Simulated assay, not measured.
Amino acid sequence: MPVLTIEQITTDPRATTKDEAIQEAADALVAAGAVTPEYADSMREREASVSTYMGNLLAIPHGTNEAKDSILDSALSVARYETPLDWDGNEVRFVIGIAGKDGGHLEILSKIAIVFADEDEVAKLVAAPDAEAILALLGDVND
């Protein structure tokens, strides 16, 4: 099963704050059948101990190690914000929620990090006209 599908990508999210964005990411992972609703609390706990801001307009909220019981399957959610969110003083346009079953999140994280380390790729993601285009740019996460 792919970790990222077209249904898990949004280009018109509603959140205007970091906390709302974390909840949206969790809700998308719940909708994908990857996590239980309790996972959102674990994402907030993780954020309280260490920021998930990664640089280059990206934040990757994810749960704590203790949350593994609320992870049903590995999956991603991707939200692109037109108006940057304030993430502890950093501008964020992309919030990628992540759930990794049995440690699968580390490989997924490394694939995302490779894309977002390249400013040209980030520019393509910002300019992508729709979810299909974003999926095409991030599709390697499913390999």
Rank of each mutant, 00 (worst) to 15 (best):
L135Q: 14
V50L: 12
I71F: 02
P61S: 06
D140E: 12
A128S: 04
A133V: 09
M1G: 11
A128P: 04
I9N: 01
R14A: 10
F94R: 09
D69N: 12
D120V: 11
V30K: 06
D69C: 05
L4Q: 07
T10V: 08
E91M: 12
G63A: 11
K124I: 00
Q8R: 07
S42R: 04
A79K: 14
L4N: 01
T17E: 08
T36V: 15
V50M: 08
D118S: 09
P37D: 11
E47T: 08
R46V: 10
T10W: 04
T17K: 03
V78G: 03
P2R: 13
L109G: 07
V122W: 01
A127R: 14
L135K: 13
L85C: 03
V30Q: 08
L137M: 09
D118G: 09
K101I: 03
D19K: 14
D41N: 11
A99C: 08
L125I: 02
A28T: 12
I134K: 11
A136D: 14
D120Q: 13
R14T: 00
D130K: 09
Y39G: 11
W87N: 02
G139H: 15
A136P: 09
E45N: 07
S74V: 02
I71C: 05
E82M: 02
P37V: 01
G63M: 07
E121Q: 15
T10C: 10
R93Y: 13
E119W: 00
L106R: 14
S70W: 08
A67L: 00
F94L: 07
G104C: 05
V95H: 05
A15R: 03
V141I: 13
L109S: 00
E107Y: 00
K111E: 15
I6Q: 08
A15M: 02
R93N: 15
I9F: 03
K68F: 15
G104S: 10
T16N: 10
A99Y: 01
L135P: 13
T10M: 04
R14K: 11
H105M: 07
Q23G: 04
D118V: 05
E119C: 00
T16G: 09
P129V: 04
V50F: 00
G89R: 02
A127C: 05
A123H: 05
A28W: 00
A40P: 00
L4G: 07
R80I: 01
T11R: 11
L135A: 14
E20A: 12
G103N: 05
E24A: 05
I134W: 15
V141E: 09
I6P: 07
V3E: 05
D27S: 05
T36K: 15
T16H: 09
A123C: 09
A117I: 00
L29E: 03
I114K: 10
D102L: 11
E7T: 13
A28N: 03
I108Q: 01
F116H: 11
I112K: 14
E91D: 11
D102F: 13
A99F: 03
K18P: 01
S70M: 10
R44G: 09
E45W: 04
L85T: 10
L29R: 01
V95I: 09
L106I: 12
P37M: 08
R80T: 13
I98K: 04
S49K: 15
